[in-house]
Design a binder for these strands. Structure first.
Length: 221
DNA sequence: TTTTTCGGGCAATTTACATCA
DNA sequence: CGTGATGTAAATTGCCCGAAA
């Protein structure tokens, strides 16, 4: 079920059914900075600039018993990206959601990181992006559901009114408000028609038909 | 044409760290 | 100030798929 496969470079949202009950927590991941201090614990505790510390750390990463990816035996220490590294990664991600090996190596060299670390960052970034998109779709479907509930309530009310009137003349028939189809972004025009089946069955003869117009409507996000 | 190998992507998970009550 | 709960993001694991040999 890989709905989003290889579509990260497109700006449009592919509508898929999000998992219901997906509680969205305020994610600071998209900003890649958030409220967290940019305090790099991999750096030596000194008032040196971040970049200088990262260079020092990079030297560590190249040593056999380092803290980087693939380090053996030694308890793994977590890399903390500097603001500048995060900024450049984010900027690159916005241009392209995947990197080919050349681009990856070049970016890694520029950031003084390992190619694997750049690769992992992009994987996690894609995952965060997808999660955010799923949350947005979930919110959209919730709103869509609410409009359907409301429309259903109106229709029920109208049915009751029609039943009370028995049969309404054609000029009394009013077009109902339309809603949007979540699948194709088109307006669903709902009209109510009375089937004249005779005096006895008139009370239960109201049917509703829906047609989808060709006018696309933009999503609420 | 079929099989094998390899590289890359993804989902799920773990882990390290920061923050807050 | 120390501590546990919680959130975030880096990193790991294992699986799948497509391309090349």
């Amino acid at each position: 079920m890989e709905i989003f496969h290889h579509n990260y470079s497109t700006a449009s949202l592919e509508l898929s059914i999000a998992v219901p009950g997906f509680s969205s927590s305020p994610s600071s991941g998209e900003s890649c900075g958030g409220a967290m201090k940019e305090l790099d614990i991999n750096q030596v505790p000194s008032p040196i600039e971040e970049e200088e510390c990262m260079e020092e750390e990079e030297e560590d990463n190249d040593s056999p018993n380092n803290n980087g990816i693939g380090a053996a035996s030694a308890p793994r220490k977590k890399l903390r990206l500097t603001k500048e590294q995060s900024r450049l990664l984010e900027q690159t991600f916005l241009q392209n959601h995947t990197l080919n090996p050349k681009e990856k190596d070049a970016l890694a060299a520029e950031l003084k990181l390992k190619a694997r670390q750049v690769e992992v960052w992009f994987q996690n970034r894609r995952a965060r992006s997808k999660m955010k998109q799923t949350e947005m779709e979930c919110e959209y479907l919730k709103r869509w559901f609410a409009t359907l509930i409301e429309q259903n309530r109106r229709l029920q009310k109208e049915v009751e009114e029609l039943r009370a009137m028995k049969v309404a003349p054609p000029h009394c028939r009013q077009p109902l408000p339309h809603t949007m189809c979540p699948c194709c972004d088109r307006v669903i025009t709902t009209t109510t028609t009375l089937l004249e089946k005779g005096p006895a069955s008139g009370a239960s003869a109201a049917t509703t038909t829906s047609t989808i117009s060709s006018a696309p409507i933009t999503r609420p996000y």
